[in-house]
Amino acid sequence: MSAVHDHSHDHNHPHAEITQDGGPGYYDLMTAAVTELLVERGLFEAGEICRQIDVLDSRTPALGAKAVARAWMDPDFKRRLLADGRVGCEELGISFYDDTQLIVLENTERVHNLIVCTLCSCYPRPVLGLPPDWYKLKPYRARAISEPRAVLAEFGAQIPDDVEVRVSDSTAIVRYLVLPRRPAGTEQFSESELANLVTRDTMIGVAVIDPPGAPRQ
């Protein structure tokens, strides 16, 4: 039995990746070999890797959007979410599979929030899934804290000069999620209609939510 081969279910991680010369790549082999050795030594079971892949696959920005939409609809929930992001999300059935804490940052008329991890790639994975590549690359990590308005402009987000831009730098155990502003003209929207407006980038803070029907900026 091996960690590489014993996946019995049929999603998209069957084997070590096949490179052009027909075999798995060097780092792919290394990943498989480290996993197998640790399984052989009894440090964990091969099935735990498969189960964690399922967990990772189950995490998408739709979870964060659900929390945002609920916060817009329910002031009491919003209070609890802002007091402790993790407890608020768990209330909606969004489990945290790691030891991270979550701080939810509310955008207002006066403050626009942006999240980054300057040291590496810390991100609220339980509620947003895995971060996009640009979040992990140098330009965003280097510049977000020193020239956030320029960075936001490159994403197409214009923040008025009289709105403070606040940047929060994530750590291994403290992660952030932006609670975007509810756009005008959505008073009659249902919670799921509201959730559909909330994108990953608006919860990172590199985008703002346009009012429904407005032309894209």
């Binding site: 998209n12 991680h13 069957p14 084997h15 070590a16 990746e17 798995p24 790549g25 780092y27 792919d28 990943t31 498989a32 480290v34 996993t35 890797i49 498969c50 964690q52 892949i53 990772l56 895995l130």
Partner: peptide, 9 residues
Amino acid sequence: PWEKRCHAL
């Protein structure tokens, strides 16, 4: 696929 396995690891 190997990247996802690496993340799960």
